[in-house]
Design a protein around this nucleic acid. Structure first.
Lengths: 158, 158
DNA sequence: TTAATTATTGCAACATAGTTGCATTTTTGA
DNA sequence: TCAAAAATGCAACTATGTTGCAATAATTAA
């Protein structure tokens, strides 16, 4: 239900950006709108497969177009696969957590800086356009799995 | 001068980590020690070319080994090419600025949070191991170049 | 110092990610 | 509805990163 409600709202996004409304773009936007967390290209391809036939190239071009129009944000990760999320007013820039074990990416609460950071002010050396905060470590699931593994290994050595 | 001084100190790094001291590893460490800013693999290859013959594969394996032993840190960037920097006590974790035009990456001053952020404390959902802050926009050089371009374009249209 | 063991390197081949040019198809707006 | 403009899909290509394995180099213990 929630997904469908979200899905209805993607046409105005293209409208407002002055982009033509092709089935491929609508499908990509729907996937992003339904996703609860940022998703990578592999996951997007998988999700699209059941909905519409779309070429790899078109997907890349679509994402790069959306990014240019600030419709989506790209989140970088050290493992090379980048993630994408819808950039809406209700979903402002926020930090992300990425698990080094399962590579799952989750959104964290937006940070409010207690005082204007010198990094955030435009100084003579840099004009700041975007700030990305990526926190990595182990998610709850993987931390528990690791614990269990260690325990059973210790038992085996007895 | 400064570069050579730095270069002398790389052997203990391998020593302390219990890694064998091969010419390839020493060369890679020297490049990283001499670099004033984090460098990407392409730049590293270029710098190594005049020093030593090293296979692509060895370079990748060396970097991944160094990372595992916390000798270096990897900085992710949206354009896909990641950057590397030496992880020493004198060079603690800090934010980076990356120019969207020339892709040059520079180190910023370490951040001191005015109050313990809830993100930094280990909670039940995530165990935090590393925090990466990447700020992007235009560096001074590219901002000025863009201004000049616009100006000359305006003049051409008159 | 030497010889055996262990670890590392380089090569070839492969896998994945992303890009470009161009012909075909679709969307748009009159 | 139709012409012009834009987007898609295909093929081919480049860049990036990985794996298995034989050859080589570093380490360790005699």
């Amino acid at each position: 239900m929630r997904a469908d409600t979200k899905a209805k709202d993607v046409l105005p996004i293209l409208q407002n950006a002055g982009l033509s409304k092709t089935p491929q773009r609508i499908a990509v936007l729907n996937i992003l709108a339904k996703a609860d967390e940022p998703i990578n290209i592999a996951a997007m391809k998988q999700a699209l497969k059941s909905k519409i036939g779309i070429d790899r190239v078109t997907l890349y071009r679509t994402l790069s177009l959306f990014k240019k129009h600030a419709i989506i944000r790209e989140i970088s990760s050290v493992n090379g696969t980048n993630y994408f999320e819808l950039a809406t007013l209700e979903h402002p820039v926020h930090p992300h957590f990425i698990c080094r074990n399962c590579a799952k990416l989750s959104c964290l609460e937006p940070l409010t800086f207690s005082q204007a950071s010198p990094l955030l002010t435009t100084d003579k050396d840099y004009s700041v356009e975007h700030i990305e905060i990526n926190i990595s470590g182990l998610c709850a699931g993987c931390r528990n799995a690791t614990k269990l593994q260690k325990r059973s290994k210790n038992n085996a050595n007895k």
